[in-house]
Write a protein that binds this DNA or RNA. Structure first.
Lengths: 271, 271
DNA sequence: TTCAGCGTCTCATTGAGTGAGACGTGACGC
DNA sequence: GCGTCACGTCTCACTCAATGAGACGCTGAA
């Protein structure tokens, strides 16, 4: 195998004190380091900060950052010139998570949950203000299926997963999203009033799971629970959906433990 | 997919026009291309497939793939030696999605406006004498879409957004920019005469919105309104663009209130 | 066995990345 | 208004890491 034995250039005949902290400066490594830094930062980052944090010379930091901006992986904040994540990065991220879920061991988790519940289950994340389905296992061929396959997007305010994400968001972000627009009434049950929605989010946050009682599609009931990262943050969600004749409030307590077990098994997949 | 539009046609350092071919081969670009390819693939990929798909020489493909594997961004399927997404990539993706949350409000608003109008909408800012698109929501059903993806830059003097920015700029800066001509004639309708352009800017400033009647792309009509900061300054703009058969002068009064509502919602995001 | 296809290794070549330094610019503080 | 400062941009010579053709080895199929 020999992982590229070039770990230390000519360690032999090393008369000089080999400075261990002098790794080779690979452009690609640094580029990924920048991307990861911006992705893990709590907010917009100044290029200077990036440079000092990663120990990059000033022009180099700018060159690499601008390269990422050209690719759309990073972007600049409107008012400040700080660096934020770009839209291409979000696209890439969704693809990555989708691909990482298609790996066999994980796939079986969702399948097992779905089999145990006897209903259609899916896994989704929040991207750009709506819910994206990363994976999905269907049990049956009922007519309402397939409108929402893998990769499709559904609104936040009227789906179990979406409301769950909203409920677990930091306060500032939640209020900004709640302020970001009118909420379309998909059905007669859709919560369109911001106050009513806010109250529902409180309930969801308190009890740790989310329901959708015909709020998006008439006759369809959903239950969603969060998938937590190792730091305890909600990074994704797993949900079951079924026609209301088969799944409704009275069965929630029954499906929750099964969903939660699945969520726990999946959480390893998200760091 | 893959906007890749930012080819930087700037030609600033272009020595001679004879070099038609662009043998630009940046290691970082190719690395990201590999990552994206694996992320968007339906299953595990052979290195050979990656190489041929991206046009990489055999050893190069292996080197880059192994580099990504060393970083944990890719991994190998255990039985087949095929390439799959690695756990680090999933971690990175979660971070990206979290970090890109700050864009969500803008996107939500844009999507709502676009849905209501049934046409492609975008948000842009002024940057270095160009209009740069920050975000964009497209409607799928018309073929000539997509020329201008997120991050791409368009001129100021012949686009609805650009003229809007020009019109709302402080006098000194406007005259400086106007003096920086010449203004290329993109179509027969493009305003290239500084005086005519100045008159147009007066009109725009007076009525508070801006139009582009085939001034940049033949057959395309645009309407743009400003997004104001809390201090009343124009910090960005929201625009709708559509083929002229569907959007023209007679529909302006109809789309304006919808655009303005979106602009107002976006303004709130800067409070 | 022979063949074919894929992964690995080598190595001369070169050009992309590098970073010190100079310069431009905008934001404060006084 | 005027220095001051700090960040961003530009330039340019250097050099090191990436490049890719070619040779080689492995494994599995005919």
């Amino acid at each position: 195998m020999k992982t590229h034995s070039t770990q230390t250039p000519d360690a032999a005949t090393a008369n000089v004190p080999d400075d261990a902290a002098k790794p080779k400066a690979a452009a690609t490594d640094r580029t990924f380091a920048i991307l990861e830094l911006v992705a893990s930062a709590s907010g917009p980052l100044a290029v200077k900060t990036i440079g000092t944090t990663l120990g990059l010379p000033k022009p180099t930091a700018h060159r690499l950052v601008n390269g990422l901006i050209d690719k759309g992986l990073l972007a600049r904040d409107l008012e400040t010139r700080d660096v934020i994540i770009g839209v291409e990065a979000a696209r890439l991220a969704v693809g990555i998570l989708r691909a990482s879920l298609s790996r066999a061991p994980v796939r079986s988790v969702l399948r097992a949950v779905s089999a145990e519940l006897g209903e259609t289950c899916n896994v989704g994340v929040l991207d750009g203000g709506d819910v994206v389905y990363l994976d999905r296992v269907e049990v049956e061929h009922w007519p309402l299926r397939l409108q929402f396959g893998v990769g499709s997007r559904v609104p936040m305010h009227c789906t179990a997963m979406g409301k769950l994400f909203l409920a677990t968001l930091p306060d500032g972000m939640r209020s900004r999203l709640l302020a970001s627009g009118p909420f379309s009434a998909q059905t007669a049950h859709t919560l369109t009033d911001p106050d009513a929605l806010a109250a529902e989010l409180e309930r969801i946050a308190a009890r740790g799971y989310s329901l959708d009682d015909e709020e998006y599609v008439v006759g369809v009931f959903c239950v969603a629970v969060p998938i937590l990262s190792s730091t305890g943050r909600t990074v994704a969600a797993i949900a079951v959906q079924a026609p209301k004749v088969r799944l409704s409030h009275d069965r929630v307590e029954q499906v929750l433990p099964i969903l939660r077990r699945g969520a726990e098994a999946l959480s390893a997949q998200f760091g």
